[in-house]
Amino acid sequence: MAEGVLSPGVNLEAFSQAIAAIQALRSSVTRVFDCLKDGMRNKETLEGREKGFVAAFQESLHSVSRDLGELERLSNLVGKPSENHPLHNSGLLSLDPVQDKTPLYSQLLQAYKWSNKLQYHAGLASGLLNQQSLKRSANQMGVSAKRRPKAQPTTLVLPPQYVDDVINRIDRMFPEMSIQLSRPNGTSAMLLVTLGKVLKVIVVMRSLFIDRTIVKGYNENVYTEDGKVGYCISSNIKFYFYLVTDHATTALLHYQLPQMPDVVVRSFMTWLRSYIKLFQAPCQRCGKFLQDGLPPTWRDFRTLEAFHDTCRQ
């Protein structure tokens, strides 16, 4: 890089002298250690030896202190690098002579401004939304008032025992749904949810947060060769369960409540359970079973009624 670009407010002359001073300081420090390493030279008398060593040591220490003094003096002359740039080193972009072709600096300033605004608004929105969602889920899911104030741990690190307990409790809530918990890949739990004789859902958890869901047919294989629950096994039933998987992912995004992950899991399972009448429920809008060869795959988040993907709003 050209020196000119680096030099706003920097005394270049002093700068190069300072570099030379650093080199001098380093070599004098090296001499001190050389002198210590060599120890006392061979002289006729013991006294002579000691005297020679002390003199040499003193001299090299002096030169160190002299070089250090010089460096300190020069460093004051060098001046401070441009601190008046609000964006520190990125401020150097403003010095780019080809400003017209690459307006990086002005774009950067704009981006910075917008990112600040975004952060501010996101903060406000998150505050508002948190109040709202607490209220709504309390109405919707019938969380008892007694439970509500109890703060849940919001971190991603929950003891596996706690996760097991929550899942067990949910398992007992729905008799037609069985939840089998395993940990094939370390601490993260993997749930195999079997809904009647209708479908199987593989739910990948991270702590108590649902990370991913895959919906499979009841007669499809969900185990890998070594007998673990696997979520990469391909499906031969192309359309139906693919769509339901899509909807389940949408449901995950809908039921979000970071403060109460166990409520989220319970809401999700309640929604999932509405698929028990998967093949028996006609669409609530057009009254038919099939549309373009597909049955009603969508379940409303609130009423849990069945709709075709194309018949919902």
């Binding site: 004789k197 209708v198 047919g217 009841y218 039933i237 093949f279 028996q280 006609p282 038919k288 079973f289």
Partner: peptide, 18 residues
């Protein structure tokens, strides 16, 4: 044949419509 379903009576109406 309706591949996703395994219980005959569950999907009879759907099969019939098809």
């Amino acid at each position: 044949e309706y591949c996703p379903c395994v219980i005959a009576n569950d999907c009879w109406n759907l099969l019939m419509e098809f």
